[in-house]
Design a protein around this nucleic acid. Structure first.
Lengths: 110, 110
DNA sequence: ATTCATTGCTACAAATTATGTAGCAATACT
DNA sequence: AGTATTGCTACATAATTTGTAGCAATGAAT
């Protein structure tokens, strides 16, 4: 499956409801991590590679293409950066950071 | 990689910061879809299978185990259901639904 | 002007993950 | 007793991701 396009069948949804297309896009490895990182400011390919630790350049490049084709990031003189829509989306996922800290306490027992 | 546990290395993060563990968990196929569906009410295994259309029982069962082990869903007499934490998380991802509808207009040109 | 470092990738094999289909034991219903 | 539904497991095939190597293009330093 290629780029998940709302309204067309996407990975796991024949109707391609927007939320399903978004889940398909964000569910791919490192997609949310890339957005999270770019929210702090533009970053080069190598910068993203360092941030994402173990991502392969193959995957990173694929992810970048998808996010660009989805209007969430663009290439600027300073590197890749979030678009206005990308920033909006970040605003929605940002609260997960704080929530995740609370959630992580469940596992502290081990 | 097995269950992503905050504080331990997860898929793509050696330090396992909570947000990274959460992204690993939610990034797996159908994880967010399952939460989205259970937010409407409890659902049986077969109910989830129908909702998720193309998911294989193998994947669904794996995802269910992970979400249970992560304290986000539980098995009840009525089927699988969100825990309080799962409901909290849903509250955070729910706004994505509306946003996705606006985002999808980008693609309408084709 | 030429080394040297950095950047933005591509190629490709190996490992991991997901799909698709079959099927089966355990309950519930008729 | 027979039939349907549920909650799975098994297993082969397909798709995705990782890990590593490497290379052309740009820029800085000598």
């Amino acid at each position: 499956m290629n780029l998940p396009i709302p309204g067309q069948p996407v990975r796991g949804s024949k109707t391609g409801q927007p939320i399903m297309a978004l889940f398909d896009l964000l569910g791919r490895s490192w997609a949310m991590g890339i957005i999270w990182h770019l929210a702090k400011g533009p970053s080069t390919f190598r910068g993203l590679q360092t941030y994402c630790e173990s991502i392969s350049p193959t995957s990173l490049n694929k992810r970048i293409k998808e996010l660009r084709d989805s209007y969430l990031i663009v290439k600027t003189i300073d590197g890749y950066a979030l678009t206005e829509q990308g920033k909006e989306l970040y605003g929605l996922i940002e609260p997960l950071g704080l929530w995740a800290k609370g959630w992580s306490k469940n596992f502290k027992k081990q």
